[in-house]
Amino acid sequence: MQKSSSTSPAPSITVNVGDKPTEILMSFGRLNELAELVGGMERLPEIDFNPNTSAATLEICLAPRDERGRRTDAEWFIPTDLSVPDAEAVLDFVKEHLSDFFLRRLEKHLDGLQTNGARLTAVGSSLSGLAGSASKTP
Rank of each mutant, 00 (worst) to 15 (best):
C61S: 10
K108F: 00
E23C: 04
L98C: 01
L58H: 02
W76K: 13
D86I: 01
P138C: 05
G29I: 00
K136D: 09
T57P: 03
R71V: 12
F102I: 12
F77Q: 14
F49M: 07
L34W: 14
L130T: 13
P85L: 02
H109Q: 15
A74Q: 07
V38S: 10
Q114R: 13
E75T: 15
E88V: 08
G18L: 12
S83C: 01
G132P: 11
F101E: 05
A10C: 08
T53L: 08
D66L: 08
F28V: 06
I24R: 00
A122E: 11
N116S: 03
S5R: 11
K108I: 04
K20D: 08
S99H: 10
G18M: 12
I78A: 00
F28D: 01
V38P: 00
E67V: 08
L34H: 08
G132W: 10
G124D: 14
T53N: 05
D100P: 01
L25I: 15
S8W: 05
T121F: 13
H97T: 07
R43E: 02
S4D: 14
S125T: 11
D86K: 00
A87P: 03
S135E: 12
A122G: 08
R104K: 02
F49A: 04
D81E: 15
S83N: 06
Q2W: 04
D86A: 05
M41C: 12
S5L: 04
K95I: 05
G39Y: 14
A122V: 02
L103A: 07
K20Q: 14
L62V: 07
P51A: 11
R30I: 01
T121N: 11
L110I: 14
D92P: 01
T137I: 13
R71Q: 15
E59G: 09
P51Y: 10
S133G: 10
M1W: 12
R70W: 07
N50W: 06
K3L: 09
T7Y: 11
N50M: 00
A87G: 00
A63M: 05
N52S: 14
F93R: 03
F77S: 15
D73S: 07
V94S: 03
A87Q: 04
R43Y: 11
T80L: 13
K108H: 01
R70D: 15
E59L: 06
S126H: 05
D100Y: 11
L91F: 02
S133N: 09
P21K: 02
E42V: 07
T115D: 08
A35W: 03
N116F: 04
A10H: 03
E67Y: 12
P9E: 03
I47A: 01
F93G: 05
G117V: 03
Q2Y: 13
